[in-house]
Structure formats: C-alpha cells, structure tokens
C-alpha cells in the first residue's frame, strides 16, 4: 500500500496547477523511491517529468509499484479543498480503485477526507536520456516568467541565444520586435537574483512561447529555473524542489520557421 504524508499541501497543489493545462490524464507511478510522473502533451512536442522523492514525504511508505491513473482536472478540484498549510496524506491500496487524500489542519482539529476514482491509463513510457547540454542557464524563475509573458504579447515564438556570459531572448512579431539580454550575475546579498550561464558551445534555438508560458506556471515552486539547451534536442526547463525532487518540462525546438 501507499501512504505518503506531505507537510504542506501547497507543493502538490502547485505541481498539479502547473501541469494540468499540458496533460490531462496521467499515471502517478509510486514505488519505494517516491512518486513519479511522465507524460507528453497531446501534440507530442512537450513532455512533463515530475519526481517527488520519498524524502519529500514524512513518512513515506510504498511496498509495491502502484500506478495511480488520475484525471488532473479532478485532482485539482480535490486539491483546491486543501488549505496551503494543511498536512496532506495520500493513501492507496496495492490494487486501488481510488486514491484517498486526507487534509489535516495543523492549527485546527479539522480533518477532511476525499477519494478520487482512478482510471486505467495506457501511457507510453520512454526513458529520458542523460544529456550533456551545450548551454545551461540558471536564472530567477520570476524573471523567466516575465520574459516569456512579455514576448508572448509580440510573437508566437522566441529565439533563445546563449553565448559566453550572456543569454538573449529574441522575438520578431507583426507589430515589432523584442530582445532581452541577461548577463552572468552573482550577488552575495541577493543570491535569488543570480544568473549563471555555463556554456560548452554557443547555441541558438527557437521555441513556441505558448508552451514556455505554460511551463512558467511552475514558478511558484522554486525561486530559480534552469534552462538546458543543445542543438537538435528538446529544451529542458527544470524547477528544483526540496530533497532532490523536481518538476521538468521538455520542449522540442521549432525548425525551419
């Protein structure tokens, strides 16, 4: 059986809020290392990969591999019934028809119990290869969100150009053009504003802003975001969570536009 207790319901609420517009039905794969999810969007150009390691939970117990097939719209409806600071416990049997969620208020003697009906989801699960990226950019997640939102007002796509010590976000639209450059920046006083660009070779790729804006819904999960780029492989957008957990998005570059 599965029993996984989260100190704060907000983590799961934010994860589901961030991915539910990309993927609708998906399996939450539970085993003794934690809870994982991998799903492609309907158009097969973007992929979500989530890993909530067992250390994220306290306690965490999962004796067997269990796949919880959940409709994310339903999941979000139930998670909205939890306060952000509630303690959240997920429970399921070894061959479950439902997943149970218990929300406990740490301040009040309130316990809320919900069940979500599970579904059989036949999802193709392909391994994501370990990749050496040509450019890895770490920047404030709020900054990346603002850039994507601003540029999406002008254009459907953005070119991300990484070169030594600088990264440029460029768009060309019907009403005009836009470009934002960020340089390596490190501050001891405000480390949350640091920008770090690691480069083995310059790389420039174009991506759909619609997807990037969608990925940025995860900004509330982490103060910084990591962008990894290489020619001819999907962009990796990673939000690191506590205990080595993560929420990752992959997006194929546009070619020939």
């Amino acid at each position: 059986m599965l029993e996984a207790r989260l100190e704060q319901a907000s983590i799961l609420k934010k994860v589901v809020d961030a991915i539910k517009d990309l993927v609708q039905d998906c399996n939450f794969d539970c085993n003794d290392s934690g809870i994982a999810l991998q799903a492609m969007d309907n158009s097969h150009v973007a992929l979500v990969s989530m890993m909530l390691k067992s250390d994220t939970f306290s306690p965490f117990r999962c004796d067997r591999n269990i796949a919880l097939g959940i409709n994310l719209n339903s999941f979000q409806k139930v998670l909205r019934c939890a306060q952000n600071e509630d303690i959240l416990t997920l429970k399921a049997d070894d061959s479950p028809d439902v997943v149970s969620l218990v929300f406990e208020s740490s301040e009040q003697d309130r316990i809320s119990e919900y069940d979500i009906k599970l579904m059989d989801i036949d999802q193709e699960h392909l391994g994501i290869p370990d990749t050496e990226y040509a450019a890895t950019i770490t920047m404030p997640s709020g900054e990346f969100q603002r850039i994507c939102r601003d540029l999406s007002a002008l254009s459907e796509s953005v070119a991300i150009e990484a070169e030594k010590n600088a990264v440029k976000f460029v768009c060309n639209g019907d009403i005009g053009n836009g470009a934002i450059s960020l340089r390596n920046h490190s501050s001891v006083e405000k480390p949350e504003q640091n920008v770090n660009i690691e480069l083995s070779e310059p790389v420039a790729l174009t991506f759909s802003l619609k997807y990037l804006v969608n990925f940025c819904k995860a900004s509330g999960l982490s103060g910084s975001v990591k962008l990894c780029l290489s020619n001819e492989v999907p962009l990796l957008v990673e939000y690191e969570l506590a205990s080595n957990s993560y929420l990752r998005f992959y997006l194929a570059p546009k070619i020939g536009d």
Binding site: V45, L126, G127, I128, P129, V233, P234, A252
Partner: peptide, 14 residues
C-alpha cells in the same frame, strides 16, 4: 510540428 515530434522521438528513443 512534424519536425518537432521527430526531434522528440529521436531524443527519447536515443
């Protein structure tokens, strides 16, 4: 979109 799908396929299947 076809190219984008292909890039993904090659990436995931190695």
């Amino acid at each position: 979109k076809i190219f984008q799908k292909q890039i993904f396929k090659f990436f995931l299947e190695g």
